[in-house]
Nucleic acid binder design. Structure first.
Lengths: 344, 344
DNA sequence: CTGAAAGCGCTTACAG
DNA sequence: CTGAAAGCGCTTACAG
């Protein structure tokens, strides 16, 4: 068997309480004692047994990471970065992440993540939109939640969201500065707040720049009540081309749709950026690899994941803390797809 | 607080031992007692606390799932299905999967998954090729391993692999039956055994069908010491076209390279399948969505993940069991990309 | 087939 | 600042 806290205590000549205190960093320990004990711990490479620790401290040491199956498969490049960020931060808390996908529409309690049925996590991070039934259920369990890229207005839950409206205003300004004014928008279902905010950001920015007639013109935006896929991007491009004269640019609600959009434009004989400018949102890692490279709004995904983990652990340690919403800043990344040629 | 085993014992009028036995299904319990206790458990929706259980039984209840960062990012569609399979099976053992990526080349112990440093898993599943240093280290820890899509000859480790050679013979036969004989091969680094086996399968099948002169002709295959990406597929297509007269078909080592290959062929004005046939391997979920749809070798990924989990749990319960290698059968899926038009 | 009891390896008031 | 001791909620020989 491995060493236990008793062994370490005996070797160091102190009590197990003292060893425990040294490890956890809690309480007051004289510097000399701490050093003495720490030396023994290091020497024997001692690590406390998780399950014993958990049992005694009434913590599981696990955090649930929940995402809808549809989001994960549709925007894997986006959400997997958030998972990575959360995992990186989890290491600082000596916590493990338990990943679970859930159906978009929860029908039965059977669809809940199984770590919820046991008492196997101390809290959960939920990424993207998810059934209100699930959130309700977790709340009733009294379990802390941190939301990423989602919000439930009216509920007291920590959340981390990116500044979608601001991102859209950056794009619109970038285009208008190039004297591009006939700007279409391809979006998706408002079920996801980010999608809605991006569309609203488009409208607000257009109106602010005196292009309100365009942003309110039905022909200028193609929205579908579906998940944002490359297909939606293709359909949107086709549709806008059909209904709008003199279309100069298409703002896509995210990079995935932008890629579908560019492919469709090219297969219809329209060159990007020569004939039409295209932009995305999220700046997923393949955005720089498309041809032409895709202009996008950079979203710090890793940081969002880390932030969620921090918020959650903070909430677990201080249950009475007031919940907050963090708005993560974004920035424009100009690439080939949105640079108008021969501007001079 | 929640109910404990003591509460259940008191309510049912038995001892905690009996309740424990009912839950675990171990030992002999009279049917009537079992029913009585089970009823109370169901009624109060009792679930034993993991950490207590783990502490008492000296099990962590966790399994580590290790994959190299490069594999995961290159073949995400393939390996994520294996993860899903393992997760599905994990539920049957009431076990959680702890996911960790590792660098392809481990340099320092710091690169090891952190669940290895603690004693936080009962065993690990390793997917794809991984540094021998890591495997050595785990073996020294005395921790059971199950390998998926990888093998270390000479070591006693359970492994699950697909029948790569047989898959390749199916492809070659399928092509030759259509009177296609000028068949090239695009592959990757032999660091990964599957890649090597597929190439060898190609050679063996070609020779068996009397086309040995082709399979041994360097001009007929493009192999690079790199991860198999779409780029490799493009390069391979270009290269084979350049060096081989009358090229009729290209067998790609997996679907990813096949997609790069098809794109390149089309951009060079060659039609698939009219001018050249193309095949892949793995049958990832987007293989059916390419244009033309891609013929491939179907690999039961979910089943492989489940199988690995079973092998591993079996090994954990019976440490003296002899390790085995399971060869998973594969089958050809004929789609448009390999059907020669106007055969009649 | 079932119960009493020890023990798993920690944490945490409590006392000093 | 440190130690003795109780207790976390289970499992598992052991006895009967």
């Amino acid at each position: 068997m491995s060493f236990t806290i008793k062994d370490i205590a005996k070797i160091s000549g102190v009590s197990t309480s003292t060893v425990s205190l040294v490890i956890s960093g809690k309480g007051y320990i004289s510097e000399s004692t701490r050093e003495k004990v720490q030396k023994v711990i290091d020497e024997y490479n001692y690590r406390p047994l998780r399950s014993a620790r958990q049992l005694a401290a009434n913590r599981t040491g696990n955090i649930g990471f929940i995402i809808s199956d549809v989001h994960l498969s549709r925007s894997e490049a986006f959400y997997s970065r958030i998972l990575l960020g959360a995992e990186l931060e989890a290491r600082n808390y000596d916590t493990y992440l338990l990943l679970s996908t859930v159906p978009v529409h929860i029908n039965a309690p059977d669809d809940f993540p199984r770590f919820l049925k046991g008492r196997d996590v101390d809290g959960v991070i939920i990424v993207g939109s998810v059934s209100p039934i699930l959130i309700d259920h977790i709340l009733k369990l009294g379990m802390p939640i941190a939301l990423v890229d989602y919000r439930v207005p009216g509920l007291e839950i920590d959340s981390i969201i990116m500044d979608n409206r601001y991102g859209l205003s950056l794009i619109v300004e970038h285009l208008v500065h190039q004297n591009v004014t006939h700007i279409g928008f391809v979006g998706g279902s408002f079920y996801h707040p980010s999608i809605k905010e991006r569309f609203e950001g488009y409208q607000t920015a257009m109106e602010r720049l005196g292009l309100g007639d365009i942003s309110r013109n039905k022909n200028y935006h193609y929205l579908v009540e579906e998940e944002t896929t490359t297909d939606i991007g293709s359909l949107g491009a086709e549709q806008l081309l059909k209904t709008v004269n003199n279309l100069q640019a298409i703002i896509c609600v995210n990079d995935t749709t932008a890629i579908g959009c560019m492919n469709k434009l090219q297969s219809l004989g329209k060159k990007v950026p020569d004939d039409i400018l295209v932009t995305g949102f999220d700046d997923v890692n393949y955005a720089a690899l498309t041809n032409p490279s895709l202009s996008s709004i950079h979203v710090p995904k890793i940081e969002m994941g880390m932030g969620a983990m921090k918020l959650l652990m903070d909430k677990i340690e201080n249950p009475d803390k007031i919940s907050q919403t963090q708005l993560i800043p974004v920035k424009l990344v100009e690439r080939m797809s949105s640079i108008r040629p021969n501007r001079e």
